[in-house]
Amino acid sequence: MITLVETGAESLHTLEGALDRLGFLHRRAPDPDSAGSTGPLVILGSGPFDPACAALKASGWWYGLPQLAAGGRPVLGIGLGLHLLAEGSEESPRGAGLGLIPGIVRSLGPGVKLPHEGWTVITRNRPHPVIPEARGAWLFFKHAHALEPGSTTLHTAQHGRTFSVLEMRGQTLGLQAHPEKSGSFGLAFLEKILAGLGEFPAARAGN
């Protein structure tokens, strides 16, 4: 079962609807004690970095998420969720991220319109046995900061500069795009990403 980390910074309606459409079991968890014992932890976010960090600290997720990840729980960060999993963000120079994904998130500017909000084609950087190449595929993005591509980057895109779309470090993934806002392809991509973390729709898992 997928555990949705509640940050208070994002409506979970669309992500829950997407998981329902795909047939995944899921629950909301306001704190780590509600996380159950298995299944990926998903943190979805958009908006400013600092308030989201504050919300995670207030709920105990700031300390609980790394502990659960260290114990082998898969983690997926979406949108701002990726920024929270990184080492830090230029948006908050004195703050730090959870450090589960290497790199500092930096502004996409200057010289481009911000936020980067719209549909952009993604490009595969490194192959993965489950997550598809998705050549020429469009995903929806909404962000003003992003990670530089590196050795843990699976997919990239461009907005002014090339930035990381999908990061994978062990069982921790970070996805800059919003698959739950990316139409039918987004849902299919989300399904493959979750399969990459060993999570499958309920009907299939029961077979």
Partner: peptide
């Protein structure tokens, strides 16, 4: 929100910040 997998916005005669917060939530 649960059925549409596209971004969407709402233009409405919002009266205060609480009403805006409700729409976002």
């Amino acid at each position: 929100a649960r059925s549409l997998f596209l971004p969407f916005a709402l233009e409405a005669p919002f009266q205060d910040a609480d009403e805006i917060r409700e729409a976002l939530e």
